[in-house]
Design a protein around this nucleic acid. Structure first.
Lengths: 199, 199
DNA sequence: CCTACCGATCGGTAGG
DNA sequence: CCTACCGATCGGTAGG
């Protein structure tokens, strides 16, 4: 890890815990054992720190979405996207938290760039949901509201996801995805005969 | 509206837009046409402003939950809780946003009090879900994870709920609740004969 | 509710 | 990467 990455990582931890504006450059410097002003040998400004962290998190989310096989049916793509999102949050908790909680503190230019990347990410979900509805893997829900529901349920996970929680991560992601797919009208219960309750 | 309430309201708008630490007392004073230090004739400190806003929002959420008829089946109570939550967020958007986004900026004492009230609120959801599972109105989901899913989907809504959006609020809340109930294994489709697809 | 003011701290720069 | 330092602004107080 380069010195710069150490600084970014320390800033990420502090921004997560205290928030961007409540964290001073001297707080960050102290946590990497530097004098108060020596950070500026490695970075240009406090806002650059925030922008770098937020962009690294955006990279991780977009990279996860990009690994989903576009040939899959929409419902299956959605499941993979949910899984990927949960994984990125859990494995990059400080950066993901700063991305989701503090990105509005960016200046206008960096902020606009992030909005573009967020929209790009959301389009993966939206497209999977629309395809799923068209193909019948999902029910006839409203695609806009369904996308908002899924992303809301995912974007709040940084508040409670604990990499050392009672579920292991894959089990948790699978159950979370099960519920979200059911919310959108998917019929799961692969092990059960759908006719068994009919006679 | 008393002068104090005007100040609280202005502070709520600014805390929502800029965040607590990025908002100065002079920003707030300016937005209610006061001199920079005259706020202190009405309030004790900046943190008291935040605490009052957060507690007013907590009041609104708890009041909404308290109106739900405890005699209803769990699944129906959950639907009413979802509806109430969406309504509180939409009707008190600035305070609700500050409550959900900035409460961690409170000092230790106020913070602990809010955690207690949040837990109390979440117990309404948890109990409705557990009852719903036991009664069969909901499926056999994990109650902890289901509670987290519902509250995550609800707590993020301040990010996109627009009181003047394309849905009217009740329709939106109804569709949101439909999806969440389905996520937890409820069988809705009240208009359809559940046997129609069997022969 | 205003004027005048306080010590502390902020992000950042100069010069080495 | 350090020392020394900058102007600006912060939350808040005194005294009226």
């Amino acid at each position: 890890m380069t010195r710069r990455q150490e600084i970014l990582s320390a800033a990420g931890d502090l921004f997560r815990k205290q928030g961007y504006h409540a964290t001073s450059m001297r707080d960050i410097a102290r946590s990497v054992d530097l004098g108060g002003s020596s950070l500026y040998a490695h970075i240009r400004s406090k806002e650059e720190l925030l922008a770098d962290i937020v962009n690294e998190a955006a990279d991780a989310f977009l990279a996860a979405a990009a690994t989903v096989d576009p040939g899959l049916p929409g419902a299956n793509r959605l499941r993979a996207l949910v899984h990927g999102h949960v994984r990125v949050v859990a494995e990059h908790l400080p950066y993901a938290t700063v991305f989701l909680h503090e990105w509005t503190r960016l200046g206008a230019v960096e902020r606009a760039a992030i909005v573009t990347r967020r929209d790009q990410y959301q389009r993966h979900f939206r497209a999977a949901i629309e395809d799923g509805i068209r193909e019948g893997g999902l029910g006839a829900v409203d695609a806009s509201l369904a996308t908002l529901l899924v992303l809301s349920a995912l974007n709040w996970t940084y508040q409670w996801l604990d990499p050392r929680g009672r579920f292991d991560l894959d089990t948790l992601a699978e159950h979370y995805a099960d519920m979200l797919l059911r919310a959108l009208g998917a019929v799961l219960d692969a092990g059960k005969d759908p006719n068994e309750q009919c006679e």
